[in-house]
Nucleic acid binder design. Structure first.
Length: 635
DNA sequence: ACGCAAATAT
DNA sequence: GATATTTGCG
């Protein structure tokens, strides 16, 4: 036998072996091509499975081996594998960022002769020719899978320890770390869990993945958002129901937490008498809770809801806390949804797929819009506050979403009615969306960051009230608010006041970033210029601001940022707000800590917040800046 | 299949 | 040591 192989091999057999590489990801494809060439193979590439299939059909003898990514938009890698197996007898090696044994098994069962986990190492490629040899050797006709499956696993399984949750390098989409490299093929005996014990690869919920998750929930509606369905909706290769269930569990916990916080605040507010508007502060939660009921029909979304305008929207607006949270997420999600929808994403690739920066005002367009300015105004009046307190909680933009979710999940439909009443005026839909942003913005930051101890320092603005959103929801941000704002400080200031939300949109910032924007806006109130700067900074990456926002949010302020903004122009407004701020409770010093300097803020807004590591640290200097703006103004 | 909580892995 | 995930169970 050996002899035969050798024979086949010929002189320099491996060299020149014709390999067709298929991967929709240009980066990965390029890398793969490079590596294959280094192995001296004759490489042909295509980023479309369909094209690959066409080439193969054109001339069945044109290639010796096919190496294909598992998840591709135009055709599932497994499908391609299956077709190749059916129509021609070529060894196929599957490629994926996901090392989930189930996937590997699927590949193997479908006839893959190997399954490699990205990032691929050249060592793994050096010996792929063995598959070609094997195939020839064992006879063309009988191939079957019996023999080949051998090593599929070796690729699998390695944990990746990447801490990255999001970040680090987006560039390389295909990177998943591998612990070691030595093992070329074979043998590792010990560690190899090939055979039996496969430990599930640990799934790291990147922001993108989480975003998808949120999207799915939105799409399904909280009520229907159960692991299985979420999994299906997410359509992420390699992700298991258990993974989703686990994450859902965590998410619900998060929502609960938020909700709780909000409630508390509300109560606090009430006690203080802060409120103004008369609404309920706290109700927030309750209100949400019901949303499940209310909407009944379509569950809509928790996360995204804003867009949809589902229950959330209502809830939010009116009231409370949640609002801001929701919004952000909403924003983001929509956009992503688009992306996600078509193709399957593999866990690994996910990040790649979802750009952090989504900017799509368009999304909104699609969405319903419903809120009118009027509504907004109403909101102003009413709403008021957000209840949220927790620093952490808030910190994330997602909170809103979460809240809503929570409500559904956690809370029962209790108070809704109350909430609703209050809110009724508000628009549902998009409003929610917009709201959120506002809220964020509003929150002021504390100054006191440095000294957590006393909450006093923090000034919070209330964002909740704002419903600036209307803007958002209805239109493209940009149109309303021109980026210019920032450009032109002066104008900006005014502008902002009028339309808080707008800014962000105008900027074209990604939804995620909204929160930041919000912040900016806030800042504007105080000092336009500063705001602009802040904004810019934020964009760059100092996410701090957002975080701050969240933290502060606790808000209870009667006035809310939104109010300020909406009112426009008048500084007076600000002042009023400030007064409120004064109250502030100081709730929790911790709030501050929540911020991170890092830059993910945008995410927060979504539900992403949940994803952030909780930290309690002092706020970065940057944040301080904000303070100034915001209220500092002192004015 | 779900959701919770204990067990683990990071 | 605290979390994030996975696993086990009702």
């Amino acid at each position: 036998m050996i002899v035969e192989e050798i024979r086949y091999t010929d002189e320099n057999f491996p060299a020149g072996m014709r390999v067709l590489a298929v991967d929709d990801d240009p980066t990965c494809l390029k890398l793969l091509e490079t590596l294959l060439r280094k192995c001296r193979y004759n490489v042909t590439t295509t980023n479309q499975a369909r094209v690959a299939l066409e080439m193969l059909r054109e001339n069945k003898d044109r290639f010796d081996l096919v190496i294909s990514d598992v998840h591709m938009p135009d055709m599932d890698g497994f499908k391609l594998l299956e077709l190749i197996g059916l129509e021609m007898d070529l060894p196929v090696i599957m490629l994926s960022v996901n090392s989930d044994p189930e996937l590997v098994l699927k590949g193997v069962n479908n006839g893959a002769c190997d399954y490699l986990v990205k990032p691929i190492r050249i060592e793994e490629l050096r010996n792929i020719w063995q598959h070609v040899v094997r195939r020839k050797k064992y006879d063309p006709k009988n191939q079957n899978r019996s023999s080949d499956q051998t090593k599929a696993h070796q690729a699998i399984g390695e944990g990746h320890g990447s801490p990255s949750a999001g970040n680090t390098d987006q560039n390389e989409k295909c990177n998943r770390k591998r612990k070691d490299d030595e093992d070329e093929f074979d043998s590792n005996d010990d560690e190899d869990e090939d055979n039996g014990a496969h430990k599930k690869p640990r799934v790291t919920w990147t922001i993108q993945l989480h975003t998808q998750f949120l999207q799915s929930i939105n799409q399904l509606g909280i009520e229907r958002a159960v692991p299985k369905k979420i999994l299906e909706t997410m359509n992420v290769e390699g992700l298991t129901r258990e993974n989703v269930a686990s994450h859902l569990q965590k998410y619900r916990l998060y929502l609960k937490k938020i909700n709780k916080a909000a409630t508390q605040q509300a109560s606090m507010d009430t006690a203080l008498g802060v409120t103004d508007p008369g609404f309920m502060n706290m109700g927030s939660l309750d209100g949400f809770g019901d949303f499940r009921t209310s909407s009944g029909a379509r569950p809509t979304n928790v996360a995204l809801s804003p867009c949809t305008g589902g229950k959330f929207g209502r809830l939010n607006s009116p009231g409370n806390v949640n609002i801001h949270n929701l919004t952000p997420s909403t924003l983001v999600q929509p956009s992503q949804a688009q992306n996600m929808s078509n193709s399957t994403n593999s866990v690994g690739k996910m990040h790649h797929v979802l750009p952090t920066s989504n900017r799509n005002p368009r999304l909104f367009h699609g969405i319903q819009p419903p809120l009118g300015l009027d509504q907004l105004q109403h909101n102003k009046g009413n709403a008021n506050f957000n209840s949220i307190n927790n620093s952490r909680t808030f910190r994330t933009g997602s909170t809103g979403a979460a809240l809503s979710s929570l409500n559904n999940l956690v809370a029962g439909p209790m108070n809704n009615q109350q909430m609703l009443h209050g809110n009724v005026q508000q628009p549902l839909n998009s409003g929610g969306f917009s709201n959120q942003p506002a809220s964020f913005a509003l929150e002021s930051f504390n100054n006191g960051v440095s000294e957590p101890t006393s909450v006093n320092w923090q000034k919070r603005v209330e964002a909740s009230k704002m419903h600036p959103n209307p803007l958002l929801s209805a239109e493209p941000f940009h149109s309303q608010l021109p980026l210019n704002v920032f450009r032109d400080n002066n104008s900006a200031g005014t502008y902002l006041q009028n339309n808080p939300i707008v800014l962000s949109s105008g900027l074209g910032l990604p939804p995620f970033e909204v929160s930041r924007e919000m912040q900016c806006q806030v800042g504007l109130m105080g000092n336009v210029q500063n705001m602009a700067q802040c904004w810019a900074e934020q964009r760059q990456g100092s996410g701090v601001l957002n975080q701050k926002m969240d933290m502060y949010t606790g808000g209870r302020s009667s006035v809310g940022v939104s109010a300020l903004v909406q009112q426009n122009g008048n500084l007076a407004t600000e002042s009023s707000s400030r007064s409120n701020e004064d109250f502030l409770f100081s709730e929790q010093p911790k709030l501050l800590s929540g911020f991170t300097h890092q830059g993910y803020d945008p995410l927060d807004e979504l539900g992403i917040a949940m994803m952030k590591p909780q930290q309690d640290e002092a706020v970065p200097d940057d944040e301080f800046v904000f303070d100034d703006y915001s209220f500092g103004a002192g004015m």
